[in-house]
């Protein structure tokens, strides 16, 4: 029974990691860059939701729509201003820029909202059926897991069935060839950032509903863990990010419960190192045969 509770808690926190990891993996898969500012977009999403509910007194779902809208625009603006000019530059320059954007967002948030943590009121507070509450399953957990699965399936459908999704995959493989097909690569990458940032906003609201302390650094640790999850599952792979996120959550919950609360994070990263030693491309990372 207790084990089951740990497992469920692991799956639900893992689902949050998975939603963040899906954003990471989309952007990496298509733009071929690690957007280390992704975690901080989550934090912005949290603050926007907080402001809409606490200051404007609007209902929770409106605040989610607001957060998604603001983060989507933010993602597109970040890409256009910071990353697009570096399209031809080395990956190191882009990486450093991403870290810079991350600090910029954190410090901007501190200027606007102050360093004192805000107390986020959970947006999800419906009662769950009794058999679930006996397992310590809360409404947030339920919503998180469902949202994560829906998002994963939605993204899989989007990239495999829609014209824009396929164009994204084409850009991911060969930008030059994609341009020769008439695909506007800049716009496609912009759209990828829009999707990734919208996901970050959703993750932000869920994260803050889960652990209600909101401060400018709120996004950092979940961001790093979700990045780990994306690599763990095979970066660039949508099911990989999902699997990586959920597994990471479970490993963390188990390590915290049975080994050591203090060492839980270290154990998570140690598992990542071991997995990468055995499978360098991650769990579901693709090995692509190439004919010349």
């Amino acid at each position: 029974m207790v084990f089951l509770q740990y497992l469920i808690s692991g799956i639900s926190i893992g689902s949050i990691y998975a939603i963040i990891a899906l954003g990471y993996t989309m952007v990496y898969g298509i733009a071929k860059m690690l957007n280390f500012a992704h975690g901080d977009v989550i934090m912005v999403g949290g603050y926007i939701s907080f402001c809409t509910t606490s200051y404007l007194g609007l209902p929770g779902w409106v605040s989610v729509v607001f957060a998604v809208a603001v983060c989507t625009v933010l993602g597109v603006v970040i890409e256009g201003l910071a990353y697009r000019p570096l399209r031809q530059a080395g990956s190191l320059a882009v990486l450093i820029t991403a870290i810079g954007v991350s600090y910029l967002l954190q410090n901007a948030a501190q200027l606007i909202w102050g360093a004192t943590p805000k107390n986020f009121t959970s947006l999800v507070n419906f009662a769950v059926p009794e058999f679930l509450s006996r397992l310590n399953v809360s409404g947030v957990m339920l919503v998180t897991v469902v949202a994560c699965i829906v998002i994963m399936l939605g993204l899989t459908w989007f990239t495999s069935r829609t014209k824009l999704g396929k164009a994204m995959r084409a850009c991911s493989e060969d930008r030059g060839a994609a341009q020769l097909m008439g695909i506007n690569v800049n716009r496609t990458i912009s759209m990828t950032f829009a999707i990734g940032s919208a996901l970050a906003a959703i993750a932000g609201v869920l994260l803050c509903s889960y652990s209600p302390v909101l401060q400018p650094t709120t996004g950092s640790m979940p961001g790093i863990k979700a990045f780990t999850a994306a690599v763990f599952g095979g970066i660039g792979s949508i099911p990989g990010a999902f699997l990586g996120g959920v597994l990471l959550g479970i490993i963390e919950a188990m390590a915290r419960a049975y080994l050591s609360t203090n060492l839980a994070n270290s154990i998570v990263f140690a598992v990542l190192i071991i997995v990468l030693l055995v499978r360098p491309a991650g769990l579901l990372g693709k090995y692509v045969p190439e004919k010349v």
Partner: peptide
């Protein structure tokens, strides 16, 4: 470049550069 195709000028690039991870039909769709 992406607007030139629409004007009726297509290129089969050197080394083919098909999208290796996509299916034959998806390549044609692109």
């Amino acid at each position: 470049a992406h607007k030139i195709v629409a004007r009726g000028l297509a290129q089969v690039p050197e080394g083919r550069r098909i999208f290796l991870q996509m299916t034959v039909e998806e390549n044609l769709e692109m």
